[in-house]
Design a protein around this nucleic acid. Structure first.
Length: 345
DNA sequence: CCGATTTGACCTGT
DNA sequence: ACAGGTCAAATCGG
């Protein structure tokens, strides 16, 4: 059964990969100079769609006991998963914390240490690419600062059950311990289509976000990613931003890791929130925000970073990691919540 | 007006 | 009983 599924998925991925390569070839064939901006945009979006689809499939099941994701911007270190979980990242639907008749199931959970910028302080550093809604705050015994509880804004709309807890460090309130639980299954469709008017909610969040992001980009930030299970493959990466440009022009500015297309933000749609806890703001992406560093957890060295930048700027204008870099795994977890709604519409 | 945040109350697990 | 987690009414703000 599972073998059949994997075979189908392999075929699926092969088709996607082939389609992606064909698009690249088409673009090379046509030549960038002969392409209108609309044509280039369409091709870029086409590439992005393939990449998105491929990236979504990047959850893997290891042969061994410890479930983890080998690579890909969706890489999440499934910390605190016991070996009894037989090598699978469970889907969110497997969990029902309110079902008292069952033992508490193990959630995909990981914790990160994130440093905000000094000026934002307790208000939190920059967003992490997701839309969070605060639903509670609690004083924690022995902790100097209260812990904030956030859930995905799209919880009701799309049933996305991702949550996070943000707690400032006792010693340095600009450093946050962010615990994430459950992966995002939400699709921010309106954000994936540049030019499409965001709904009211997104509008609100986008406006708010833009201001905050601008501020944060001005002040710079640093991210420290840690994993509870000491997964060494996820290094602590820091990015410095010194941009003073308006949000809409960020991609023109000089950044260490910049995105190249208007819809690059999709990366964060499928990557673990890895940059910040964002204490009190909603974190929706602006369609033109230079935002995503999805996949930074994957970097194992500075050269890797360069490789990714090159992958996004040379052979392809796609902002996404080159699939060669990703080293696509072809073994999948059948429990993976493969929600493709909104991607093939 | 509507969505986000705040915050006290309530629920749940230990 | 207590601490952590969640709910939901009140409040805020664009």
């Amino acid at each position: 059964m599972e073998n059949t599924l994997n075979w189908d998925l392999k075929t699926f991925i092969n088709e996607l990969t082939q389609g992606r390569e064909l698009v690249k070839q088409l673009r090379n064939h046509l030549g960038l100079s002969s392409l209108s901006s609309t044509g280039e945009l369409l091709l870029t979006k086409l590439l992005s769609s393939f990449d998105k689809s491929l990236l979504m499939l990047n959850w893997v099941k290891l042969e061994g006991d410890q479930p983890q994701l080998i690579t890909g911007p969706t890489a999440v270190t499934a910390t605190e998963l016991p070996s009894s979980v037989s090598g699978s990242l469970r889907s969110d639907s497997d969990y029902d914390l309110r079902d008292k008749s069952k033992k508490r199931k193990i959630l995909p959970r990981w914790t990160e240490q994130v440093r905000g910028c000094p000026r934002t302080g307790l208000e939190g550093p920059i967003d992490d690419g997701y839309c969070w809604r605060k639903y509670g705050q609690k004083d924690i015994l022995g902790a100097k600062y209260p812990r904030g509880y956030y859930r995905c804004t799209y919880r009701n709309v799309q049933g996305c059950l991702a949550i996070k807890q943000v707690q400032p460090s006792d010693k340095d309130p600009t450093i946050f311990s962010v615990r994430y639980e459950r992966r995002h299954t939400c699709i921010k469709a309106s954000h994936l289509i540049p030019g499409k008017s965001p709904n009211r909610q997104n509008q609100y969040q986008t406006q708010k976000q833009s201001k905050e992001t601008f501020h944060n980009f001005q002040t710079g930030f640093e991210v420290k990613t840690e994993d509870l299970l000491d997964t060494k493959e996820f290094i602590s990466s820091s990015f410095s931003f010194t941009s003073t440009s308006p949000i809409g022009c960020l991609q023109k500015e000089k950044h260490n890791f910049s995105s190249l297309t208007p819809d690059n933000h999709f990366m964060s749609s499928f990557s673990p929130p890895i940059k910040s806890p964002t204490a009190s703001e909603s974190n929706c992406l602006s369609p033109h925000r230079m935002n995503s560093f999805g996949g930074q957890n994957l970097l194992t060295s500075e050269s890797d970073l360069h490789e990714i930048i090159l992958a996004g700027t040379s052979g392809s204008n796609s902002p996404i990691l080159d699939l060669d870099y990703l080293g696509f795994p072809l073994d999948f977890d059948s429990h993976f919540p493969f929600d493709t709604s909104g991607f093939f519409s």
